[in-house]
Design a protein around this nucleic acid. Structure first.
Lengths: 106, 106
DNA sequence: TTGACACATTCCTTCATCGGCATATAATCC
DNA sequence: GGATTATATGCCGATGAAGGAATGTGTCAA
């Protein structure tokens, strides 16, 4: 069995560094494909393909404006990722607390 | 160019659902490989291989105890993931705030 | 309608992955 | 040492990712 498709879930989609870069770039404001190409200095087909993946998992939303397509990050779709990270973050805080308590008891 | 190695970074390592399951299982307490095998009902070689990947990126730490190896999640290694998620979380909160402010102004 | 601009898709090649099975290593016990 | 338990590794086959180059689709302007 090969690796799961990049479009299978958010985790596989963000495994690619370039896709994370794109998400960050699109998080603050809507941007055209050309903007992404020049900002991240990637090939245009490459960017389009990455955007396709991100769109398939709902991480970006697209809107046509004349000849260009405007993309933006859909923050809501990050939820699974955030929830996963948050679980461990909470454990980490508890661990720190335990260490602190132990230190105080000495 | 094929996909990046699963051991190239934390993001690629956690792309696999089983590996996320393993991380969750090992987050609370140290566990042996056999424990993981029976808890997640996976093949033993499969689990060993997943653990290898997780270990290579520092997401788990191993310790030998007699014949068995005890693994535990290294919460600290989750940092890149958490930082990435947190960035968008903050934006999301700001977005909500903006919506709220706009609603109040009406 | 023809041409230019903005993006999307296809084809191709090159790998690394994941699971299953068999086998190797390692530690313990008798 | 030999057998047993616990884990790791190697080999295999099937599948899909990613980049590059070329081509397709869509929109506007004259």
């Amino acid at each position: 069995m090969p690796r799961a498709a990049t479009t299978s879930d958010v985790f596989n989609a963000i495994a690619e560094p370039r896709r994370r870069d794109i998400l960050s770039f699109l998080a603050l404001e809507e941007r055209s494909v050309g903007d992404i190409v020049s900002a991240l200095s990637l090939g245009q087909p490459s960017v389009s393909k990455h955007l396709r993946v991100l769109k398939d998992v709902g991480l970006v939303q697209a809107r046509r404006d004349g000849r260009q397509m405007l993309y933006r990050t859909n923050l809501d779709a990050m939820k699974p990722l955030h929830e996963f990270a948050e679980t461990f973050q909470q454990m980490w805080r508890r661990q720190l607390k335990r260490i602190k308590v132990r230190a105080e008891g000495m």
